[in-house]
Nucleic acid binder design. Structure first.
Lengths: 139, 139
DNA sequence: CAGTATCCGTATTGATACTG
DNA sequence: CAGTATCAATACGGATACTG
């Protein structure tokens, strides 16, 4: 048993006593409601590829192929689908130069940059915290 | 030895030896690599229910039933499964009081609180930005 | 109360082939 | 280059029944 687990009782008591009473006071966020339209946005954003694509675009506009190479493991099909979803929510702008051969660039909208900032914070945390997270996987 | 464990080992070695080569001035994030174990963490966190459960727990420890009522639309099956996933990554602690009838409480670990802070930022943004996002849905 | 076991339909995804 | 179309495999998730 890990050190954390041994102290679980103490830990739970500490957290409980520090719990503010706002649980009952403040109404449950809309996202907690099963029918909230935010759920759709959440799913398009947090699908298997959404946040990774947004993360990649945070560095600057990119073409389809470049994006596909940067996001490891994504198929053409899923990249196209993911980009369309992000476009639906106004996070990504698609610009077709109309040339032959095709040249299409994807860029974050101002709204997309706002989202990307939050995504950056989360993905960056996961990455930098992986050693600590992985510690629990073996013991 | 599990496949995951082997991946972790490889991953940690790569990190130690600074194997990754950056394309631009900022290095390509490891999460962009298809084989990065962070991808597993990301998927457990950004599954359909992960972030919502984390969000709910951010307010304080809760029992299984309470959690289920707060997160609208989640089934017992998926709540149990989601909580186990979050436990795997050391974000959530499960404490079974061992009583009859059963009394089990779930709480965020310190690591979970760090994650929840990022999740809060993202979900909160989605919620508050929904009006602007929805504007693009019609015109 | 807090789950687990099983069944089964659906959604998501990958592979492959094809197009302008 | 930047996609789309189609099919097949699988992962996901809900409903129901059951347990200590």
């Amino acid at each position: 048993m890990s050190l954390v687990s041994r102290n679980i009782r103490d830990y739970l008591r500490k957290v409980r006593t520090h719990r503010n009473v706002s649980v009952k006071n403040s109404p449950a966020p809309d996202l907690m409601a099963a029918a909230c339209p935010s759920r759709d946005v959440l799913r398009r954003l947090t699908g298997r590829w959404g946040m990774l694509v947004l993360w990649a675009l945070a560095e600057g506009p990119q073409r389809f192929g470049s994006l596909r190479r940067q996001v490891g493991g994504i198929s053409e099909r899923m990249l196209a689908q993911t980009l369309q979803g992000l476009e639906t929510d106004g996070l990504v702008l698609r610009h077709d130069f109309g040339t032959v051969p095709p040249h299409v660039e994807y860029a974050l909208t101002p709204l997309g940059h706002e989202a990307a900032a939050r995504v950056d914070a989360l993905l960056g945390w996961i990455e930098s915290s992986l050693p600590r997270i992985a510690q629990g996987w073996n013991g």
